[in-house]
Design a binder for these strands. Structure first.
Lengths: 207, 207, 207, 207
DNA sequence: GATGAATGAGGCTTCATTCAT
DNA sequence: AATGAATGAAGCCTCATTCAT
């Protein structure tokens, strides 16, 4: 049974790699099977439809990021520091070997905008996403209580939107950093992301 | 002669519509030909590879947006006002019948991140994109000269990054607004985009 | 346009041959395409689903038999003689190069009993079948009018059932005659079919 | 030991059910294993090839019908009554929960017409079939001896053919009765089968 | 120049059968 | 002996692209 989980993991890993490299549509089930050194039929035994595999991989990616954020949330720093940690982690996360993961997330967002994904599958993803936004919301509340964050109701809405936007930008950033030069559309560099983060932080402190 | 251009336009229009609806990969050349009421062979005569058509469509979309920004750039308002106009236009643009266009752009950014698009084709797109950023840069300079914008060198970099990020967010926003409910990932509502815009504007004024 | 019909015909012919030889399920679209010397895609262009092709072939087979029966129906013999001709033709038909056709019909009856064939497709087949039974019914009526057939109402029902049964048996007969020895189930020989036919005829004359 | 036979029986039962419902080709070994609550591997241990299982099931079906006919054969009625009983039983048999069995037989006849079944397997089936025809032949002889059946040599051949044909028709009938309406090809209703049976009986009495 | 027809390569998925526990 | 897991071969179908009219 452990063996099974291991195998499953290996397929998801292979899929993740290939999806991140080629995109969902150009990645064939056969390639994934080969990469993961199993027969196609085995792959289909674990994930009866390609879409199931896609969902599973995305879920996996989301879930492997979550602990980092939970750890921050559970630390005993002040709210504003936690936000700072979250954003910093977010930036760092994509700079390392995790770029694949983030690229994948970005790809999936687009994928789901076109393909009418089966509702119950989507729901699982939404749930995972919600965990992240819940963490942010909780920390914001905490920060308001401990006085490290000061936001009028009006500004709070703006703050949340800004935080969302930041997340979006970071993900987008991850999309292109793999390519030799930044392509097509200008994307912020890591340094710039940090600057923006600082702006956000100070925005949260006195509005 | 003129007929030719008309036809070409009609094919691009059909492609735009279908690409925005189905994504690049699910849109077949046959469907585009049908929608545009020409034979497939004709479509291929004009665009010998599907990728060429994709590029043309994206270029088209970019170019049809450009005049709005150029007009703003050429108006005789102060720099800060021009920036305000640009951002507002950006928000408004996607709210109307142009959502397709923006959705397309977003899709293409992802597409180009996966497919190693032929370099010379990409270059054309980059050129188009650069026009936009050039306009922004020019306006920023202008604002600094006319005193309506005040940015220390350090802050200027941040400001540019923020503006980029804003553009990214707006495009992303366009991706999901077509769907009944905001899906998977939280996207900012139009009101929130306006709030963020205001924050940006005030940021540009005294830093 | 004539070319098109010719091609279509050739594909149907190839399919007929292979279906009769291998059955519907063991006959692959690829084999049919090869046999008919077209690409698979072409085959699919003409018959977008395998089932469509099956239906088309069956319809074809039914329709190519029809003229023989119509000719008999339109002759100016007496009713009883027409029935005799019909049954004889039926027996003869399967004895010649048409065995494939009849075998196919038999196969399709079974196929349709298992596969839930699309209703509108089935309808077309039913219509074709109905033409045959209509001819029989018409001839029976005619025979009753011209006095060559005499059947009390009660016996008429039996007569029709007998005729149906006869048709069934003949088709079944065709199934096995291709095999070296009669297999598994005893099937009537041609001579026996003729004897049965004679019994039927005399049954129709005085009941 | 006994357990083994029980298991075997249960697999055959499951196979029978599924074969009758879906046909041989659409019924997978996995489904049969599931239905019979054993692992696939076990199923294969008992029946190393799907075809073996098919044969076994058909044999089973034939053998479970046999006793009814043997009982009739061993009764102490006159020949003609025995024939009557046999035909009636035949009609009744398919009207009850045994339709599956008969449908299966019909399906197998077609199956064997296409697939070149392994000869030794087929032989077993033939043997089973022969038992039935032997019973009929015996009863006919008996009837001739006891005077209840009167057939000239010429008519006897016809009579046998008629009896065969009757059997065929009854099996065919079973194929379609499961479907809502009689499909495609007209099949005799039960009442009509009884009428035909009566005709046969009287045919046997004075020819 | 415009077009419908033709096509092979390739994608997803299934299934009988074999392995390994 | 019993079983779930593994798998390659094969089937249906699609699509970008090329031919032929």
């Amino acid at each position: 049974m452990d063996k099974k989980m291991e195998r499953r993991k290996s397929m998801i890993e292979a899929a993740k790699k290939l999806f991140a490299e080629l995109g969902f549509e150009k990645t064939t089930m056969q390639k994934i099977a080969d990469e993961s050194k199993v027969g196609v039929a085995t792959l289909f035994r674990y994930f009866p439809k390609k879409e199931h595999l896609i969902i599973e991989v995305v879920k996996e990616v989301l879930e492997e990021q979550l602990p980092y954020f939970e750890e921050i949330s559970n630390s005993n720093k002040k709210g504003i520091e936690k936000i700072n940690d979250v954003l910093t982690t977010n930036i760092m996360y994509i700079s390392e070997e995790n770029r694949d993961s983030t690229k994948l997330l970005e790809a999936f967002e687009l994928y789901s905008a076109f393909m009418p994904v089966e509702v119950d599958l989507l729901e699982e993803i939404e749930k995972a996403y919600r965990k992240f936004s819940d963490i942010i919301v909780d920390i914001l509340e905490e920060g308001k209580r401990d006085g490290s964050i000061h936001l009028s109701p009006r500004h709070e809405i703006a703050a949340r939107a800004l935080l969302n936007m930041f997340g979006t930008a970071v993900k987008k950033y991850s999309l292109y950093t793999l390519l030799p030069e930044d392509v097509i559309v200008p994307v912020p560099k890591k340094d710039e992301l940090i600057m923006i983060k600082d702006i956000l932080i100070s925005y949260l402190q006195d509005n």
